[in-house]
Amino acid sequence: MKLSEIVRNLELNVIYMDEDYEIRGGIVSDLLSFVMAHAPEDSVWVTIQTHVNTIAVAVLTGIKSIIFVSGQNPNEETVKKAKEEKIALLITKDNAFNVVGKLYSLGIKGVDRLQ
């Protein structure tokens, strides 16, 4: 599913989105080490963590987009790094549980990365 379809269906606010990536899976976690170990490539990450380290984790794992939930907003440093690395940043006031349910209903499943 294209990222633009997710944005439209979940009514997400776009902070930064340079490309309309094909999203093949998803992960939800606020623990960076868990995401590093389990995130599939070409995925969307649902989290409340908004600091710049989220971008490093996304680059490391091949995550294409981060959805910040519960009204959390990234700082300027995070947005700047996301633009450099071409990681889409999206926000919603909705909570993580609801966002993941909506993603699942759209066909975005959580799939462990092969290790």
Rank of each mutant, 00 (worst) to 15 (best):
I15M: 09
I87R: 08
P40R: 15
L106M: 14
M36P: 15
L10I: 10
I27N: 10
F97N: 03
M1D: 10
T50N: 08
A96M: 13
D94W: 01
Y21M: 01
I55L: 12
T54E: 03
A39D: 01
Q72L: 04
I6Q: 05
V28T: 12
I66S: 08
S65F: 09
K80N: 01
E77I: 03
P40M: 09
K102Q: 15
Y104V: 10
L103I: 00
K64Q: 11
E19K: 15
L89W: 12
V28L: 07
V44L: 05
A39R: 04
I23F: 12
Y21H: 06
K80G: 00
G101N: 13
R8G: 00
K93Q: 11
N95D: 15
K109I: 07
G25S: 08
A39W: 08
E84Q: 10
L106I: 06
K64A: 12
D18L: 12
L12N: 13
D30L: 10
E76V: 02
T54Q: 04
N9L: 15
D30M: 06
F97S: 01
H38G: 02
Y104G: 00
A39V: 09
P74C: 01
K86T: 04
N95F: 05
G71R: 02
V35M: 11
M36V: 14
A39N: 06
D20V: 07
I87S: 13
D42K: 14
N53C: 01
A58C: 15
A82Y: 07
V100W: 02
L60D: 08
I66K: 08
L3E: 10
K83A: 03
V69R: 00
E22T: 05
